[in-house]
């Protein structure tokens, strides 16, 4: 590893990314009517998971944190060399999924703000968002158990 390498934000950024992804996935799955059906909302302290408006707000906040971090990483990569990112996707596949999630999510946010989008497009966006999120989750889980590759110091796409 280069002596110039360093980890921007350190463990704090690492944890923020984990929290943002975790809450986005959890609140995203909570948009399907499953938490009440399958007793999760019955667990003391988790009753709010059956409130779609609460999980929607959490989804927005998690997405905002994630977008902020990714934008920070993108901008920092253009200004600084030698950053060794300890968080984020490590493959094109991961970044592609994240890109799909952002595009479909942004369109859904516009729709929720009252912008008209054709119903067939909405359905494509919904299933793209859901499918990408599931693929991202399973890819992430697989990455946790498989051996980590050597870090790429450039970071953005590694």
């Amino acid at each position: 590893m280069s002596a110039m390498s360093y980890s921007p934000g350190g463990r704090v950024a690492h944890w923020f990314y984990g929290i943002a992804v975790g809450f986005a996935l959890f609140s995203g799955f909570g948009q399907m009517p499953i938490f009440k059906r399958y007793y999760l909302a019955d667990i003391p302290g988790l009753g709010w998971t059956a409130n779609y408006y609460a999980t929607s707000d959490i989804h927005y906040l998690a997405a905002a944190l994630l977008l902020g971090m990714l934008a920070w990483r993108l901008a920092l990569d253009t200004r600084t060399t030698g950053a060794a990112w300890s968080w984020g996707p490590r493959t094109w596949w991961g970044w592609t999924l994240l890109g799909l999630l952002m595009i479909s999510g942004a369109a859904k946010v516009l729709r929720n703000a009252g912008v008209f989008l054709p119903p067939p497009l909405i359905m494509v966006l919904d299933f793209t968002h859901l499918g990408s999120a599931m693929a991202f989750m399973f890819t992430g889980l697989a990455a946790l158990v498989k051996p980590k590759p050597k870090p790429n110091l450039r970071g953005l796409v590694s």
């Binding site: 590893m1 002596a3 980890s7 060794a84 984020g88 870090p151 590694s158």
Partner: peptide
């Protein structure tokens, strides 16, 4: 100047 470093850059 560049020196060998022990800085970790492992990505989770």
């Amino acid at each position: 100047q560049e020196q060998p470093s022990s800085e970790q850059g492992g990505q989770s």
